[in-house]
Structure formats: structure tokens, C-alpha cells
Design a protein around this nucleic acid. Structure first.
Length: 338
DNA sequence: CATTCGTGAAGACGAAT
DNA sequence: ATTCGATTTCACGAATG
């Protein structure tokens, strides 16, 4: 963003200016105003001196930095009211904040009625001006809201992407998908985290480095139900074209997680290719196929893994592994014979 | 004893209505 | 919204080494 570049430039010039000013007048108070708190209090951890940091509303230990108390700001009224008329007179605070709006209800709202502050009806000319103001105010507010939304979502995508070991380009794709969802107004009614998770999952699949639903849900902030619901919705509304994940793309990871050799990996891939040529894989879980192929590949060799080992790393039940690997072997035999 | 195998009931999901 | 078919999972016991 151009904004960011300009700001750093600004800061640099300010910094150098401040440096020279400070050199001429060395006795300047620190920016953060810290003062000693009441005597008799000391840090419960290390016994160090406690100071209050008014800027952050915290009491912290000077020695170890332990935050003893935080959020000391009193958000209640500083006056007391004994009946409701008194309350009306003394109260000078505005509308309560709400978490239901992204800006906590603190942004400008222009009333719907065409009355001025005294309740008088507006002239025609004034009405038109107000209408324009409403339009623009609304535009800025939603634009701003989307901006924030996007910022948070991108952070989330970044976090999950790195937790899942996804490449930079996959994260790029995920953010593009997210942007599209945002532009198409798909977000209302859905959580940012959910859509971010879905976008990440979809991007990983498109890039041919899929992560299973379980893996994504594990690092996501939403539960599996919501994730699946959101994912389907996003795919449908955005018209994302996603091939069923290719079982082979899981093989490498499973093999290495199980500590098996490349020979096994090669055999597993062969089994999957044979299976695919006979359309064994349609309608079956790709992860299940991959798991079964890896297991089957070890069978004739001296590298031993149990079905339950495979279940551990793949999250595919032993039953499914059994069913799939037998099918795979059967098909492989047929292909060999042909 | 550990592992593998097979089975029926039950849950989840997509498609069709 | 419900129903149906296919798939996967769970729980269990039997067989195998």
C-alpha cells in the first residue's frame, strides 16, 4: 500500500527532527508517563517496584514487567444519580456502544426523517442535500467495514496457512477467493473465520496440495459443522470448480509421516493410478484411497505398518482402509494381467 | 497378545422430489 | 423439507500369526 510507504517515510523525517530537537533540549519527559504507585505495593513475582502506566491503564512491575492490574479505566459514570430525573440531567454520555456493528456504533448515522435538529421539516433543497449525505456516508461506512473485515480475514488466512504448511501462492489464492466472497456480499450471516477457513481449504485443493477437512478444522476457529456448511455455500455461490482432490497428492505426506521409504511411495502411487484407470475412486473419499494405497504398498515388503498406524496419521478408519485396500489390490491384479 | 478381517447398525452427505 | 442411496464410521467378535 502506498499509504504504508509514506508513513514510514514520515516517521523517519520526524525521528531525525526529534533527534536534533532533543539534542538541544536534553531534559524532555518520556512519552509514556510512568509514576510510582502507592508505597507498600510490590510485585508478587519478584518483589520489584510497581509503577502505573496511565497510557495503557496498567500497573506493571518495573523489574520483570509483570502486569499486575490492567484495564483500570473506569468506564462507568463519575456521578451518582438518585432518581431518574436526576439521571437525565447529569448524564452526558452518548449512545451505548454495541459489538453488533463493526465500529461499535460509534460512526456517524444520519437520521431517516427529514427534520432538522429542532424537529422542523426541511426545505426541499435541504432534503436533497441530506439525501446525498446519506448516500455518501453509507458508502464510506460499508467500504470501511469491508476493509476491516478483509484485514482480519487475511490475518486469519495467513495464520492457518502457515499452521498447515501451505505455500505462499496458496495463501494468495485463498485471499483472492476471500475477496471474491466479500465482493459478492457472501459474508453477512457467516463468520469471517469460517469463510477464511473455507477459502484456505479451497485454495489448497486448487493448488494440488490439499489438506483434509480434519486438518483444516484442527487449526481453524470454527467447528466442523460450520466449516462444511460455509465451504459448500462458498463453492456454490462463487461457482468454484473443484475437482475431487487427487488421492495421489496425499501420498507423499502420509508416507513421510509414517516414516516409510520412497519405494513405498512409488508403489502406492502405482496402485492409485491403476485404481483410477478402473474408476474405483469415484464417490470414494480421496483421503481414504490414499491411506489404503499406502497401507497396501507396505504389504509385500519388510516395512511394517499396522492399519491402526495408518489410521493415526490419516484419520481414516481401519474399516475403510481395509475395504479400500482390498479393492485396490484386486484392481491392480486385473491391470497387471491385462 | 497384537493384528487383521468381516458384519450390522447408525450417522452424514448429496441428489432427487 | 423429506426421502433415498451410497459411503463411512463405530463396536464387536472371530480368525490368524
Amino acid at each position: 500500500m502506498a499509504d504504508a510507504r509514506i508513513r514510514t517515510y514520515d516517521e523517519r523525517t520526524h525521528a531525525s527532527n526529534a533527534g536534533t530537537t532533543r539534542a538541544s533540549t536534553p531534559e524532555r519527559t518520556d512519552a509514556t508517563d510512568e509514576r510510582e504507585s502507592d508505597a507498600g505495593h510490590s510485585c508478587p513475582e519478584c518483589g520489584g517496584r510497581l509503577v502505573t502506566d496511565d497510557e495503557h491503564g496498567e500497573t506493571i512491575c518495573e523489574e520483570c514487567g509483570l502486569v499486575v492490574e490492567e484495564d483500570e479505566i473506569d468506564r462507568g459514570p463519575e456521578w451518582r444519580a438518585f432518581d431518574s430525573t436526576e439521571k437525565d440531567e447529569k448524564s452526558r454520555v452518548g449512545a451505548p456502544t454495541t459489538k453488533l456493528m463493526h465500529d461499535q456504533g460509534l460512526s456517524t448515522n444520519i437520521g431517516w426523517e427529514n427534520k432538522d435538529a429542532y424537529g422542523k421539516t426541511l426545505s426541499n433543497r435541504q432534503r436533497q442535500r441530506m439525501q446525498r449525505l446519506r448516500t455518501w456516508n453509507e458508502r464510506f461506512r460499508t467500504r470501511d467495514s469491508k476493509e476491516r473485515n478483509l484485514k482480519q480475514a487475511l490475518g486469519e488466512i495467513e495464520r492457518m496457512g502457515s499452521a498447515l504448511g501451505l505455500s505462499e501462492s496458496v495463501r494468495e489464492t485463498a485471499s483472492v477467493i476471500y475477496r471474491r466472497a466479500l465482493e459478492d456480499d457472501l459474508l453477512p450471516g457467516r463468520s469471517i473465520e469460517g469463510v477464511a477457513s473455507a477459502a484456505t481449504y479451497a485454495a489448497a485443493r486448487q493448488a494440488g496440495t490439499p489438506r483434509s477437512i480434519d486438518e483444516v478444522v484442527a487449526v481453524s476457529l470454527v467447528d466442523e459443522m460450520e466449516f462444511k456448511r460455509t465451504y459448500r455455500y462458498i463453492v456454490r455461490e462463487l461457482g468454484l470448480e473443484l475437482e475431487p482432490a487427487d488421492p495421489e497428492s496425499y501420498v507423499g505426506r502420509f508416507v513421510s509421516d509414517l516414516g516409510l521409504s520412497e519405494e513405498i511411495e512409488r508403489r502406492a502411487r502405482d496402485l492409485l493410478r491403476a485404481g483410477k484407470s478402473e474408476n474405483v475412486h469415484v464417490g470414494k473419499s480421496p483421503v481414504g484411497l490414499a491411506a489404503a494405497a499406502v497401507y497396501a504398498a507396505t504389504l509385500g515388503t519388510d516395512e511394517k505398518v499396522t492399519q491402526s498406524d495408518v489410521r493415526e496419521v490419516t484419520d481414516i478408519s481401519e474399516v475403510t482402509i481395509r475395504n479400500r485396500y482390498q479393492e485396490l489390490l484386486e484392481v491392480d491384479d486385473r491391470v497387471q494381467a491385462a
